[in-house]
């Protein structure tokens, strides 16, 4: 299997890892957002959603593990690429022309990704840990909703959440079309459409996720 190891360790292999894991995360975000939108239906709607998830708990656990691995691969590989790519130019230019020939989104993937990563840790430690490791099972649905409500009343937490998902949007805006390019699906006719689709997707994700803390902060969730 050394051919596989070599292939995935080649520069194009590493791109493919980024793209495949990225696409998985893109799909995950869609499902995550749809689920989260039940928050707008008040706590009964949200309860219904959570109860459905409780019914398939073993599946969710497997998905969580897979998702965790995907995150780790995406992040590890991303950081590795960033370090290697830094080393490919030991002495940088004094005048940087990069603003003239690239988009802001494409050249800040490591920065937006890092902030999203910090956000992810915080996000997991506030919601995921609290949801899974505290309280009695029968009270959970109520607790979930109130945990969310409580956290989003905190202006710093809500603010950071909003900033982080906007940066996530930046990350996705580049990542979406970039994945297509990496898979070799760049066609003169369709690629401009894919780029627009990516921007629309990134906007929906950023606005969708950002709206929740804003809604709870200003509205209290009642």
């Amino acid at each position: 299997m050394s051919w596989l190891y070599n292939s995935l360790n080649s520069s194009i292999g590493k791109k493919i890892i980024m793209a495949v894991t990225g696409v998985c995360l893109v799909l995950f975000l869609i499902i995550h957002l749809i689920g989260n939108l039940t928050l707008y239906g008040g706590f009964n709607a949200f309860n219904g959603y959570v109860r459905t998830l409780e019914l398939v708990k073993p599946v969710i656990r497997v998905v969580e593990v897979v998702l965790g691995l995907i995150f780790i691969f995406h992040i590890f590989n991303g950081v590795r690429l960033w370090i290697e790519n830094k080393n490919a130019r030991p002495e940088n230019y004094t005048v940087k022309g990069i603003r003239k020939n690239t988009t802001l989104f494409s050249r800040t993937m490591i920065q937006t990704g890092s902030i999203v990563f910090i956000f992810l840790v915080l996000h997991l430690s506030t919601f995921w840990v609290a949801f899974n490791f505290s309280g009695e099972p029968e009270h959970k649905p109520y607790q979930y909703y109130s945990i969310i409500m409580d956290w989003f009343k905190n202006p710093f937490y809500a603010g950071f959440y909003v900033i982080a998902v906007i940066l996530l949007g930046f990350h996705l805006n580049h990542g979406f079309q970039s994945a297509f390019q990496t898979f070799g699906w760049n066609h003169k006719k369709y690629f401009p459409f894919i780029q627009k689709l990516g921007t629309v997707y990134a906007l929906i994700m950023a606005i969708g996720f950002a709206s929740i803390p804003i809604y709870f902060y200003f509205n209290g969730g009642n």
């Binding site: 080649s10 520069s11 194009i12 790519n85 080393n87 490919a88 690239t102 494409s106 993937m109």
Partner: peptide, 21 residues
Amino acid sequence: VMVMDELGFGSCTNTYACEAE
């Protein structure tokens, strides 16, 4: 691609600066 990687070039991250320049 193998030789390209061995020679110390970085990896592509699809910024497209190359095409512009």
